[in-house]
């Protein structure tokens, strides 16, 4: 399978990438790890006229401590995140989440920025990004801004990113304790259901859920009902329209969400 013809531009800076996005508009796509985009292009589900490769931009693949937070560059691969000592120590749930993505080869190429911008409803990071209350740092024609995780995901493959914006980093507050529990799609290793739970600094918990609805969400009903035991997990899909597909119908998926939520709460 071969994609339709396109022009390839390698950006050497974020401002150059933003300028290229502005210049080519809808016809352009950002290429990071390419592990969602290139298969889509080969299947001709997507046929951009211009690819803007941001993988070589200096400084975008760093993992740095910043006071009470860890800043993860958008070009960090899943492998880098899974094996980072700093993330394992300060935001262990993030490294745990990254290690469940795809397989060795996919983790060596795919990036956190690419995954978040793509916003696949079965992606793993959204659950953890929501539970950690992370901030998505973006840069675009209008300068740079920070988007709260709870405002970022807006629907299937839809985010709060403007057309000329690029994710440059994700800022994770340090997390004392957290757990990501996932029911794997057996062939693709995507999440049929993924639930992330973390202990919040105020003594409560935050819970993020992916794979269940067309948009990942905070399971606020679980958070409110949490009493230190795992019984609150029964509220995992309260008020949520549960997706149904050939892997899992709505009833089964709702059941899986409660089981994964229970396991995540038990691990806290």
């Amino acid at each position: 399978m071969i994609p339709t013809k396109f022009d390839y531009k390698k950006a050497s800076s974020i401002s150059e990438a933003v300028a290229l996005l502005k210049e080519h508009g809808y016809d352009a796509k950002i290429l990071a790890g390419g592990h969602s985009l290139i298969p889509a292009m080969k299947l001709r589900l997507n046929s951009p006229g211009v690819l803007i490769d941001i993988s070589g931009i200096e400084g975008m693949n760093k993992i740095e401590e910043d006071g009470d937070a860890v800043i993860v560059g958008a070009n960090c691969t899943h492998q880098q995140i899974a094996s980072s000592g700093l993330i394992q120590k300060e935001v262990n749930i993030l490294s745990q989440t990254a290690s469940t993505i795809g397989d060795v080869q996919v983790r060596n190429c795919g990036t956190i920025g690419g995954s978040l911008a793509h916003s696949d409803p079965a992606a793993d990071y959204p659950a953890t990004v929501l539970a950690c209350d992370a901030q998505i740092v973006v840069e675009g024609g209008g300068g740079s801004r920070v988007i709260a995780a709870s405002d970022f995901f807006q629907g299937i493959y839809t985010t709060a990113l403007e057309d000329d914006e690029i994710i440059v980093a994700v800022k994770f507050p340090k997390v004392r304790k957290g757990s990501y529990q996932k029911f794997y799609q057996s062939a693709s290793r995507f999440a049929v259901v993924g639930v992330a739970a973390v202990q919040a600094p105020d003594g409560g918990i935050r819970v993020g859920v992916t794979g269940v609805a067309d948009t990942p969400y905070r399971a606020t009903a679980v958070e409110a009902a949490y009493d230190g035991s795992s019984s609150a997990a029964s509220h995992a899909v309260d008020g949520v329209e549960v997706m149904s597909d050939h892997f899992a119908d709505a009833e089964y998926r709702a059941h899986l969400a409660k089981v994964m939520a229970r396991r995540a709460l038990e691990a806290l």
Binding site: M1, H35, V104, Q105, N108, C109, A187
Partner: peptide, 22 residues
């Protein structure tokens, strides 16, 4: 389509699926 791994090569020492790289 980057599922089966038959196309795996080492790129700068890391295993990658060459069908999904340009």
């Amino acid at each position: 389509t980057s599922s089966c791994g038959a196309c795996t090569v080492l790129l700068d020492g890391r295993a990658v699926k060459s069908c999904t790289l340009l």
